[in-house]
């Protein structure tokens, strides 16, 4: 069983001109193989930094990050990353974007075409194979980004506010796309979001971070049955989880923004 992520006492600092900023202070979390785990926290608390460290983009300053007991030294296609801003290559067509991974690994072109077509179909993008990303809507772009990562069959999927740039309807649609995909492929997922509803709906477990510099404030196991459908949002248990998480986050945002002004 691959894709077991362990983050232990992670601290990451950036050294600027005259001072050192700790982006993340003391984060410990775990994504077991095939689990769906979310990370929520107020803006600037270090969520992206945690993701970037597991991805292998940013090395830990202190503490350790391992996947299947191996310390992470550099990015690898075993750990796929989906970015908030999609980061599709504008100089490549939809087809070429999705084919990027297998082509980098010199897979033969016939096999590439077959598997790209399969993902285009899965994502409902068949008609757009020859379009450039700039010609697609936000929801379509994010599906291309997802396909570009999934085609490498990673063990771990790291998603940094993947739906943050989408409108509410597209967002709900994409949540179901991801949930269906996860239920059929069972990859380990670490999902960063601001949206509490989204976190509860998707996750097995939710970590809440403290305000900057971030550490883990509290953990919630979401014991809702699977497979989940949209109407689970009206479930009493669902609402209780949302309430608990909401209060935890509210405490942290007050630390950043101060108490509510009184008039």
């Amino acid at each position: 069983m691959a894709g077991h992520v362990v983050v232990k006492n992670l601290g990451i600092s950036f050294t600027g001109k005259d001072k050192t900023i700790w982006a993340v202070k003391d984060v410990s979390l775990e994504v077991k193989s095939r689990e769906f785990v979310s990370l929520v926290g107020v803006s600037g608390c270090g969520k992206s930094t945690v993701i970037n460290s597991i991805a292998g983009f940013v090395p830990p300053t202190v503490g350790e990050v391992t996947v299947d007991n191996q310390p992470i030294t550099e990015p690898n296609s075993r750990r796929g990353v989906v970015f908030q801003s999609f980061v599709l290559f504008p100089w490549k067509t939809v087809f070429e974007n999705i084919a990027f991974g297998p082509r980098s690994r010199d897979v033969d072109e016939k096999a590439i075409t077959e598997s790209v077509d399969q993902y285009l179909k899965l994502m409902g993008l068949m008609k757009f194979a020859d379009h450039y990303p700039q010609q697609l809507s936000g929801g379509m772009r994010q599906r291309v980004a997802l396909a570009r990562v999934l085609i490498n069959d990673p063990d771990v999927l790291l998603m940094d506010e993947p739906f943050g740039a989408l409108d509410a309807q597209t967002r709900i649609f994409m949540q179901e796309v991801v949930l269906n995909l996860w239920e059929s492929t069972h990859k380990s997922v670490l999902f960063v979001t601001h949206d509490i509803d989204e976190a509860v709906f998707l996750s097995d477990r939710v970590y809440v971070m403290t305000a900057a510099p971030g550490s883990i404030k509290s953990v919630y196991d979401i014991e809702l049955e699977r497979p989940r459908h949209a109407d689970i949002r009206l479930d009493q248990k669902f609402l209780l989880y949302k309430k608990e998480l909401y209060e935890a986050i509210r405490e942290e945002s007050q630390k950043v923004l101060g108490p509510l002004p009184t008039f």
Partner: peptide
């Protein structure tokens, strides 16, 4: 060049020596 392009390419498995032609140059074009 936006470092996200380089990160995205590295995490889908591009080898370092292909980075120039596949990512850096087109991103700078």
């Amino acid at each position: 060049v936006d470092k996200n392009y380089i990160w995205a390419a590295r995490s889908i498995g591009i080898r370092r020596e292909k980075l120039w032609l596949q990512v850096i140059v087109p991103a700078a074009l």
